[in-house]
Design a protein around this nucleic acid. Sequence first.
DNA 1: GGCCAGGACTCAA
DNA 2: TTGAGTCATGGC
Length: 296
Amino acid sequence: MITVETKILQPKNFCFGRCMGVLDRGYEELLYTLNDRTITRCIRLASGLAIIQVSSNDNDLIIKITKDVIEREDEVACRDYVTDWFDINRDISGFYNQLKQCKQTQHFVDQLYGLRLMGIVDLFEALCWCVIGQQINLTFAHTIKARLVQKYGDFIELNGEKYHCFPEPYVVINICEDELKHMQFSRQKIQYLYNIAKAFEDQGLNKESLLNRSASDQMKQLLLIKGIGPWTANYVSMKSLRNMRCIAYGDTGLSTALHKYFDTEKKPNYQTIDALFEPFAGWEAYFNFYLWSSLA
DNA sequence: GGCCAGGACTCAA
DNA sequence: TTGAGTCATGGC
């Protein structure tokens, strides 16, 4: 194993610590570890698995890459990964301008300054994570995800520590149902996970082809999979496909935040939500994300 | 013990 | 197209 270091210039309106905070919510999590202002995780490159350790100084994000062999394209791929993960290449000053116009939420600009819409780069992982988290509490959702990752996710070791990736679709398809039941996945969730994995393996679903389609086509494509409903399609569009015009309608956290800041009903309907999001046209996903983050 | 949780599905009317 | 029932288990 060898290690090389590369850097990304931090954009304006960026705060590494705040971004890290989103990842550090006290849940059991095998897909990354946080310590000493560094995030470490395993990622899957075209040339194999790599470990990246992301930290920051005043001007840059610093990425240490550890891998058996590191070519030039691996460095580029790692920088691309982190750029996507932290949503680096987006100028969010337009969002902040809108936020300042809204008296109920203008304090977010200070409270959450520099926070980026942290992504889930791997589309398959994003979809599975949504299904796992549907209608169960997040603590338990993390627990059963960790069981799946620990048993079936590829990993590499660094300093005696294992770093896992989320399992690939062909792996998930071949896990027997009893094993998933034993991990306490419900029958419904098991079928939904199989459906997603089959869409990737048998029907050629992948992130690159989806990104070549319009946002509404992306939604239609995702909703064809049994187990993917409006909430999941919007969440994944926001976190993985990076469509900034998504709202997680029906989300309990979103309802809680809107009730808190705008005195809506406890579960506001579509019309109410759309009206409140209207000033944030083009930044709906960020507004949604900031509303979530403000509750943490 | 009861209600709720980062929902989505089926089925009836 | 809308509403009730179902899934399924941990956290509080």
